[in-house]
């Protein structure tokens, strides 16, 4: 203790030490730093506002019932996005039907059933890895496996091929969302279930899933809204840009060629005539409205879920 410089009532000699608190300068730097972080945050918001303003001012005048109910055309004034809108809705349904059960099942397996061994860890690493693979790579997979090898079943670059490709693309997102929702359910509920003699599946089905389902649905809707906005994988599998018919409402409809909203928008953007750019802006408004509808549903579900848990 005798080595301590502050023995007894002796105070450190601040005035003669090398320590310079220099507080006024440090606080000034603090101010600058805080302002910088606020500016950084508002850059994102500013761009979002600019983007929405630009698109609405370009495209709002073109929005009309004629635009929504017409097929694409070589003349910009008569062109519409009926086939693209219907194609996107088909894709949404097919993707949801394929991805929801598989994603939720995988999530339940990994969170509730799987033993903690090498095999399970491999699947987990793999899912993390898949989430970072660029979407265009999924397009190449869909082109080779679904559009070419499985042509007799899918009928080439069809709605089914598109749905399968998008389902694989959003599978990791649904799995992760399902696992998070399951993890949020308190363990006491599981123990209570086991204590009254339920099997693991009975516990999951009757006790855990009802608690977790809003979280699962929120994650699924957000994943589907990502799928609806995807362009690159659909172009890669060979989706067409000019479709002047609607798929029949039957199983054969799954095997017909299709186009989708983002593809139609891309097609219009990539043309030189400004009139087509106006069409693109109007198409973007429709696409964003669809996304807004889906995201609002997801947020409402999440809020309801969080209030219920309190």
């Amino acid at each position: 203790m005798s080595s301590s410089p502050y023995s007894g009532s002796e105070l450190p000699d601040i005035a003669n030490s090398d320590f310079q608190p220099n507080l006024s300068k440090r606080y000034a730097l603090d101010q600058v730093f805080e302002q910088l972080t606020w500016i950084a945050t508002f850059i994102g918001l500013l761009v979002l506002c600019l983007l929405l303003y630009d698109i609405i001012s370009d495209g709002a005048s073109r929005l009309s019932w004629q635009f929504i109910s017409s097929f694409p055309s070589r003349r910009p004034a008569t062109a519409g996005l009926l086939s693209a809108l219907v194609g996107s809705i088909w894709l949404l349904c097919v993707t949801a039907v394929l991805a929801f059960p598989v994603g939720v099942g995988s999530g339940i397996f990994l969170e509730e059933f799987a033993p903690d061994n090498f095999f399970t860890q491999l699947i987990e690493i793999n899912i993390g890895n898949l989430a970072a693979v660029p979407s265009i790579i999924y397009g190449l997979l869909g082109l080779q496996v679904f559009a070419r090898l499985m042509r007799p079943i899918t009928g080439g670059p069809s709605i089914l091929t598109g749905g399968l490709t998008l389902a694989l693309l959003i599978l990791p997102i649904i799995i992760v969302a399902t696992r998070e929702a399951l993890r949020a359910v308190p363990n006491s509920l599981r123990q209570g279930g086991f204590a009254v003699g339920a099997t693991r599946w009975q516990v999951v089905r009757d006790l855990i899933l009802p608690q977790a389902i809003p979280g699962v649905l929120t994650g699924t809707i957000l994943a589907l809204s990502r799928a609806i906005g995807e362009t690159a994988p659909l172009i890669t599998i060979g989706a067409l840009t000019f479709i002047a018919f609607l798929p029949p409402l039957s199983l054969e409809g799954l095997q017909t060629d299709f186009t989708a909203l983002p593809i139609q928008v891309y097609n219009w953007v990539s043309r030189p005539q400004p009139a087509f750019h106006t069409n693109a802006a109007a198409g973007i408004i429709v696409l964003m409205l669809v996304l807004l509808l889906m995201n609002t549903t997801a947020v409402l579900l999440r809020n309801k879920f969080q209030k219920g848990r309190m």
């Binding site: 994102g44 979002l48 983007l51 906005g229 953007v269 802006a281 973007i284 696409l287």
Partner: peptide, 24 residues
């Protein structure tokens, strides 16, 4: 409020950003 608003930016389809880059 800020975090969900920023996350809207993440939900905008990339084809929309392409339009914004080229024409704005």
């Amino acid at each position: 409020w800020l975090k969900p608003t920023l996350e809207i930016l993440a939900g905008v389809p990339t084809v929309v950003y392409g339009y914004f880059a080229l024409l704005f």
